[in-house]
Design a protein around this nucleic acid. Structure first.
Lengths: 201, 201
DNA sequence: GTCTATAATTCGATAGAC
DNA sequence: GTCTATCGAATTATAGAC
């Protein structure tokens, strides 16, 4: 998956030129996709950011669609939720995602994917797949498979809603809050869907 | 705002041809913007949906940007929240938006605007403006201006997150739930940000 | 008022020289 | 491996005939 499928095995450990170029394209693509979304992020702009010719992008990745697929092959790097006390689970989740979103734009794959997923079906499919494969299983280790299935989507709705309003729409009331204030105010809401009060069961 | 600024007053009450054409363009534009977003919704496609020539769209609205501005001049039609008991406020809010989103795509302006706002700054600006002018004041009548300012953004994050995951991303776990199940499970989360528990104040 | 024709860009992707 | 040159399609917007 990560090595060039056309090459025979090599003895040298030194990175090939083609590998560094490929990595440069991928890094530039992640930044452009994150800020502009799939449609506005042109191959030409990505190539310019990477300092190479547009035709190289096609040569290395075949098409814009395949480049996007490679750029959005994400690992959310969720912590081990089984080790977290139920009481702290909501805050841990909120803090984890907030931390990732504040980091390097080329590294916060979730925001990149979310920006494109709203208007590009291919990206939406990829996002659904990633959430199902990573968030749901991680939740299952903490609160059991049955309850994770029942509230996984609602937890996603809350966390993606937070990402949406804070980083993509930049609503003043959400974008201006500090990370810790956000954890304090939003974690109780996540708790309400993770552990439904009696009245809602 | 709603009448053609170039016309002199007329005595007849019969709708002019230009008014029905203008309305047809606007209706078609709302559908295309809602399903495809600002960039993919082309003037050609909108004209085809309205059964007229693409050049007519420009003639009536000047440019694609101005057409979008006219199509997204929304009224969320929020109910009178001052008349709602605090206890029922979260469920009333969730149910109101769910109802609107299930309706006619050409009438659910919020979903249309949200789809474009993630990748088009003009749409994001319009959405921020609408939320600030309509949601925030309505909340203020129910829980007071001070507390509305503190939690308005968080309530928006929850409701927009729900719209995002249910109707734009169509996450299976959220899209499959019935409207009433969603109210029951999501209202407690909205309550948690509207009326913060002691631990989070 | 409505349409035909087209200008002026911009995009993804390809061919081929070096 | 890298770049030049370009194709073919699609876009917004305009000019002008009827």
């Amino acid at each position: 998956m990560t090595s060039n499928s056309l090459d025979a095995p090599r003895r040298s450990d030194a990175p090939r030129r083609s590998d560094t170029t490929r990595a440069a394209i991928l890094a530039a693509a992640r930044v452009r996709f994150a800020t502009d979304g799939y449609q506005r992020a042109t191959i030409r702009a990505i190539a310019a950011s990477a300092g190479i010719d547009p035709s190289m992008v096609i040569r290395y990745f075949g098409s814009k669609e395949q480049l996007f697929a490679a750029a959005t092959d994400l690992d959310l790097r969720l912590p081990d939720l089984a080790a977290v006390p139920a009481e702290e689970l909501p805050a841990v989740l909120v803090r984890h995602f907030l931390d990732r979103w504040e980091g390097d734009p080329a590294d916060d794959g979730l925001l990149m994917l979310l920006r494109s997923a709203v208007t590009t079906e291919q990206a939406a499919e990829q996002l659904r797949d990633i959430l199902a494969r990573q968030v749901a299983p991680a939740l299952a280790t903490a609160i059991g498979a049955e309850r994770a299935a029942a509230c996984g989507g609602l937890v996603s709705a809350q966390l993606l809603g937070l990402a949406l309003c804070r980083h993509l729409l930049r609503l003043p009331g959400v974008a201006a809050m500090t990370r810790e204030a956000l954890v304090e105010r939003f974690a109780p809401a996540v708790r309400a869907v993770l552990f439904p009060p009696e009245a809602a069961r």
